[in-house]
């Protein structure tokens, strides 16, 4: 695969993850279980949208078609999105939202840490800025997973259900394809599979403390990061997110 094309795909993968998850988290605004969580969720969403601006900004630059980060966010169709399926999954209850966040953060931190050593200086710079935020997100989501897993019988059951529901989407983070091969070759990004052992360690530690049981490994559900088969949820999310740009084409806001 040509290096530039692979690089563009990679930037979409990074930017679409933060865009779609940032959007999902922002859906909580004003509806969290306690005021501190409203603040924390808004803060997480804000960080993720900020990271999106950097990743998709660079993607637009690399694409070289005169587009902006906003064009990429608001004017692509569902099959053009390259985010992990995990991040487009619905919020569900607060437990499901925080479990999704934890499963993502645990990967995101490892990925960003590796990217700080990227051969591409722009990628390394975005990663260096983002990793601080992601580390904080992970601290908070892990703490919440532990608190609710090891809380009441009800909170435990809800967290276990969330884990069972979301775990099949974890495997996609570690799948490799031609894009990854080209990136590894160019020293831009790590081989996804190389992050798995550390990821599993984090999960074992946090879920152990949370008294939750990792479900039996099932076939990884993929199709998001290569855009081959998203879930039905993504289209609805985009319908909301892209509505203004599509209803009033060419307007500036």
């Amino acid at each position: 695969m040509a290096r530039e094309a692979a690089f563009y795909e990679f930037l979409l993968r990074m930017g679409d993850n933060t865009l779609i998850l940032g959007h999902r988290v922002s859906e909580w605004c004003g509806h969290a279980p306690v005021l501190e969580e409203d603040i924390a969720l808004a803060n997480t969403a804000l960080d993720l949208i900020g990271q999106t601006q950097m990743w998709l900004g660079l993607a637009a630059e690399v694409q070289g078609a005169g587009k902006t980060a906003d064009d990429l966010a608001f004017l692509r169709d569902a099959w053009d999105f390259r985010n992990l399926l995990l991040v487009e999954m619905p919020n569900g209850d607060f437990g499901q939202t925080l479990m999704r966040q934890f499963l993502f953060d645990a990967w995101h931190v490892l990925q960003l840490r590796a990217l700080t050593a990227s051969s591409d200086a722009r990628v390394a710079a975005i990663a260096a800025k983002s990793v601080k935020e992601a580390t904080y997100h992970l601290e908070r989501s892990a703490e919440t997973v532990v608190g609710l897993g090891d809380g009441t019988a009800e909170s435990h059951a809800r967290m276990q259900a969330a884990l069972d529901y979301l775990y099949p989407y974890v495997g996609e983070m570690f799948l490799s394809d031609a894009v990854d091969a080209a990136l590894v070759e160019a020293g831009i990004a790590p081989d996804p599979a190389s992050l798995r052992a550390d990821y599993d360690d984090t999960l074992a530690r946090v879920l152990g403390e949370a008294t939750l049981t990792l479900p039996e490994a099932r076939r990884a559900r993929g199709g998001g990061r290569d855009g081959k088969m998203h879930t039905e949820h993504l289209g609805h999310l985009l319908t909301t997110m892209q509505w203004m740009q599509r209803a009033y084409p060419g307007a500036t806001w």
């Binding site: 004003g30 509806h31 969290a32 279980p33 009441t152 909170s155």
Partner: peptide, 17 residues
């Protein structure tokens, strides 16, 4: 709704603490 739906979260966190 936010308050009622969040009751299990607040209770869970308290129980853990």
């Amino acid at each position: 709704k936010a308050w009622d739906d969040g009751a299990w979260v607040r209770e869970g966190m308290m129980a853990h603490a």
